[in-house]
Write a protein that binds this DNA or RNA. Structure first.
Lengths: 203, 203, 203, 203
DNA sequence: CATGAATGAGGCTTCATTCAT
DNA sequence: GATGAATGAAGCCTCATTCAT
């Protein structure tokens, strides 16, 4: 049931706006639902219900389930990346990692799903994770370069430096239900992980 | 005892052996198939076909799909654990990590599936991963304790020491197709990871 | 209320009607099919085919096979009961039994299936039979009470009076194919049963 | 595992005897199992297990499941019939009905299964029930004839006289779980049914 | 465009029956 | 003859996707 009695009465631009809005809403609610029940176990019907639209509407906006997930994931990737850039602007390694954790913590449920289930999803999911990591990597590399030069942190190959950090964080996220049942892992262990990691890479 | 008493007396070497063999074969082929197509995306019919038996035979040996997967995973866990204990017998931290990589490398495809998909599977999958890690943790802790005492490696909380290593290894495994397409990651990056990690934890 | 609020407002006469119709059609055709092939031996696919819909459609309307059967049986129970009340309104014992036979005759095939297979079905089937019998019992008790008081029929415990009648009728229904092959038993033997039974209970 | 090391050592007659014995045993245990779990819901594997033989042995003795059931039912029919003849030898109507109840009570569980599920089974099941009833009918008819002539019981068409009785008894058997949960119905209600019925048919 | 009923391919599981030993 | 592992034809149910309204 639309807001208008006859479809043709709606001005074109209005209609398009409406459509874009529905699409956006769908992405938002899908995001929530996927974070809640997982990327694999959420059915298109669940998403439709969560968004308060008909099941068919999902396919009016996205040709396939995969396309919707890809969109949600991409959207998410863009937001996280933006946020990380915001937070991590040119500080020390310590500050950048802190910003990274803060940024992830804001999206922990969905990000965790991506870490856990990403490898079962369309390539876009993987690419998004790569993109997010690039954002961090970018800032971290610069800071690390500086601090290596300044003798603050050890000289280590950048990719290993970075992957050690990511590996550590992902490991805690993926096993959050074991490490910190019922409570965000990053909240509970973030500080500890950060300090530990800094210890490791500090001269 | 009547003639209808049941047939537990003599091992009935012929038939029972045959059945055990089929069961074993099924587990082996399931193992391969699961390693190849993933734990989520492998259907019971695929396993039957891979094993060269009828679909029904799968259920003559395992009551449900889950039971079969659990069996395969447990079997796998036991083998890996045993192997890790074999390899990691009381050496230095370096030797133990080397042994760990060697042990995992022998089972890389399946282990990778477990790391990637474990969180979507019956609890047994998680438990198996925990068990495997316990095996490594056990040896690593002892060696690390010694070497910390000897001033060879840094004093660090054991769980962080361990999880940093596991996180790093799992991260490379989970993304093996990106880091090392078409070739086992551990073969390509194992040495590098090991040396890097040792650098980090060395005084 | 947003535009995504759900659509309970207007009856959406078109679609909802259509769905209800399909559901009803499904129940009707299931009813026929079950009467024809029996409650045990009718598969969901048969019902779908009989209704001219896809197999999946059955489950779009009823969560399980059992739920569908239960629905059909309940619907049937309600109809028969209503009909029996209609027919049996406060007459003599003779009239009530006549009404009972007439009511059953209208639904003989399905009712016979229920009598034959009821004990193998979900509880709802039993309950429905009980409900139907309660309807008759209610009217019969009242009339019998009156006629016993008036010395028209013998003084007999009500439950035995009733169960004798039901037992007789069910026996003929359950063996209808022997007593009256290719033709409704009640049509052929109803009158005779009624007269016989009245003879028995008459002073 | 047979009692003999080599099959050919067994004398022909011995073997045949053995086979007949197994067959008999199978029928006996099938009888118990069918009485316990019902004719529809008992699987051939259950029967084999109950008999302590292999699943295949069932099919070595009976070509199909139906053939086995038929055999069991026929065997049962013969026994009940014989027993009924034994018990019901030429007494009064009262004595004959009493004998009938007594005879059925000895086999109540299986007989009840037959009454409940008979119409879903191969024709032989129906025929057996008919045969059993013929046995009773035979004695009852003679006695009833006498007592009608003697003015003890009413003059009623024999088939109605008989079917009223059978209908009543079957009704209580089929609904035994409702009328007398956890206890044989005939034990609890037999006497009452008998007296009630006699009242009905008595002048 | 939005709707949601209908679709149907495909997955898991059961069980009477077969057959090599 | 007895065995029991293996078979495979069904049966129930799920869910992404389509399409008439």
């Amino acid at each position: 049931m639309t807001q208008y009695a006859g479809v043709d009465e709606m001005p074109e631009s209005q209609r398009q706006k409406q459509k874009k809005q529905t699409r956006k809403h769908l992405i938002t609610m899908a995001f929530n639902q996927l974070a809640k029940d997982g990327l694999i176990n959420t059915r298109t019907a669940d998403i439709a219900k969560a968004a308060g639209v008909s099941h068919g509407t999902v396919f009016a906006h996205f040709p396939t389930r995969d396309a919707l997930l890809t969109e949600v994931i991409n959207e998410f990737g863009a937001r996280v990346t933006r946020r990380l850039h915001e937070l991590a602007g040119g500080g020390s390694v310590h500050e950048i990692l802190e910003a990274h954790l803060k940024g992830l913590a804001e999206f922990e449920p969905f990000y965790t799903r991506l870490v856990r289930e990403g490898s079962l999803l369309p390539e876009s999911a993987r690419n998004t994770l790569i993109m997010i990591q690039s954002a961090v990597s970018f800032h971290l590399s610069q800071a690390a370069e500086r601090e290596m030069a300044a003798g603050i942190i050890r000289r280590l190959p950048m990719h290993l430096l970075f992957n050690t950090w990511i590996g550590l964080v992902h490991y805690y996220l993926a096993n959050g239900d074991l490490f910190s049942p019922g409570k965000p892992v990053l909240e509970r262990y973030g500080k500890e992980l950060l300090e530990h990691y800094l210890t490791l890479i500090t001269e």
